[in-house]
Each structure stands twice: as structure tokens, then as C-alpha cells.
Design a protein around this nucleic acid. Sequence first.
DNA 1: GTTGACATGCGAAGATCTTCGTAGTAAGGT
DNA 2: ACCTTACTACGAAGATCTTCGCATGTCAAC
Lengths: 126, 126
Amino acid sequence: MSDLPRPTDAELEILTVLWSRGPCTVRDVHEVIAQRRPAQYTTVLKLMQIMADKRLVSRDEKSRAHVYEAARPREVTQRQLAGDLLDRAFAGSAAGLLMGALGARKASKKELAEIRRLLDQFEEAR
Amino acid sequence: MSDLPRPTDAELEILTVLWSRGPCTVRDVHEVIAQRRPAQYTTVLKLMQIMADKRLVSRDEKSRAHVYEAARPREVTQRQLAGDLLDRAFAGSAAGLLMGALGARKASKKELAEIRRLLDQFEEAR
DNA sequence: GTTGACATGCGAAGATCTTCGTAGTAAGGT
DNA sequence: ACCTTACTACGAAGATCTTCGCATGTCAAC
């Protein structure tokens, strides 16, 4: 399993679009991103080309408008990013990371219950 | 409360030293870092000067060897970083972030218990 | 076939990050 | 006073990130 570089901020933004919409053309991605902030088409294009070079995305060139797809499923990259932050800022403490997250944004009661549920499920699976 | 820029990788490494050892000279920090990887003294110096410009650290120039200190306590920066990642990669889902963390590194049974404990404590405090 | 719409490729600029060498300066011992 | 040592300041180079304009190519419609 080859390991990919940690995606940069701009790259991650594009990946989130690809994860939620599935394989996309540059135009598709640009439309989504341009909705939330000013961004030129060619900027998104260039980024996606670079991501293809880095193997962060795969590219299907069969049709005129190339179709890009995230190279790895969302969960795998999320694990990479969480693990990376865990090491760099939390000395490996998942509890610390969770407290950081809960302290940073209000979590609903429902979310807390969800966390407990996942915790049970996670513990069961070992 | 002024908001500080997100520390870069190299800056975060220095911050972790300052958090764990308290106020330090450049030499102190360099000694710690040089132990784990090759790094020139002036590289660390320059980084810490830049961090002072950015207000990520404060600098006491009274003695010849300036003494640096993290501008904000560890927990505050951890919250910033966790919140940032939460937004950028987990669509705000703390549960997702926790699963990412647990999936990335083996968590001991003790750590899982700790998480439950903190979760109780956190929920109580609202 | 010409034109218009739309796509990629390419180069380059500006910002930031990271690295380090060199120069200058202050302190302390001899 | 002088020399050594230790420290800061400064400038600059190289890498990466992010941005965008322009050239070029392709396809369909007229």
C-alpha cells in the first residue's frame, strides 16, 4: 500500500467535493467551490492536475473532459490526517484530540450519544 | 482575544518543546530537537524569531540569551488545530474525528476508558 | 470549413515555509 | 586589551503552495 502525501488545504477541499459527489470533471468541482468562494476555473484545474501527479486522485482521460476520482476513500485519508495530528499535536492521545474537538465546536447531545455508540462498537470489534 | 495563525509543522514542533519544558532559550529548544533529527541551531533560531513576529511565542530579551515562551497554553492551540481539522476534513463531526484517530493508532484499553471518563465529565459540565 | 464553446497544457508569479551561512555583537576568562 | 565562545540579526536560497493568464486543441453546430 503506497503512502500518499498529506493533502494540503486546497487539495483537501477538492477531495471533499470528490468524496461527496463521486467522480467529477474539473467543471463539476469548480462549480461547487466557486459557490463558496471566488476561484478561477484554471486554478482548480491546475490543482487537480497536480493532485493527479501526486496520485491523490486518479484521472480518466477517455472523454474530452477528464474525470477525476479520489484515489482513496474518505475514511482512509481521514485516518491519515487524524493520525498525523495526533502525533504532531497531541502526543498520541486520542482522548486529548477528542477533548480538543469537543472544546472547539459545540457538539449536540445527539453527537455525544453517537460517540458513545461508536465507542462501544469499536471496543466490541477487538 | 486576537486569533493567531495556525502553526506550521515546524512551528508546532517547537511549540511542543516550549509547552513541555516551559520558557526556553533557543539553545534549549535546539538541543531537544537535534536529539531526534538533524537541525542547525540557526534554523531553530530563525523559526522562533518568525514565531515571535507572528505572536505565536513571546520573547523576553532581558538576558543575553532571549527566553521564549508559547503565547497560548497547549490546550488552546490543540483546540484550534482540532477544530480546524474538524471543519476541513470531517464536516464538523467529532465522532468521525474520533474514529479516524482510533483507526489510525492503536488505543489501549486504558485510553478507551479514559475517553469514556472524559466524555462523562464533559457531559456533566453543561 | 468556420466559428464558438469548452477543454487541457504550460509557464510564471507571488506567498509561504524551511533551511542555513555569514556577519556582527556582547560576555567572560586570561 | 585580547581571544574565545555564545548569541542574535540578516539575507538568501530552494521547496512547496496557490493563483491565474494565455496558448492550444477538440468538438459540434451552423
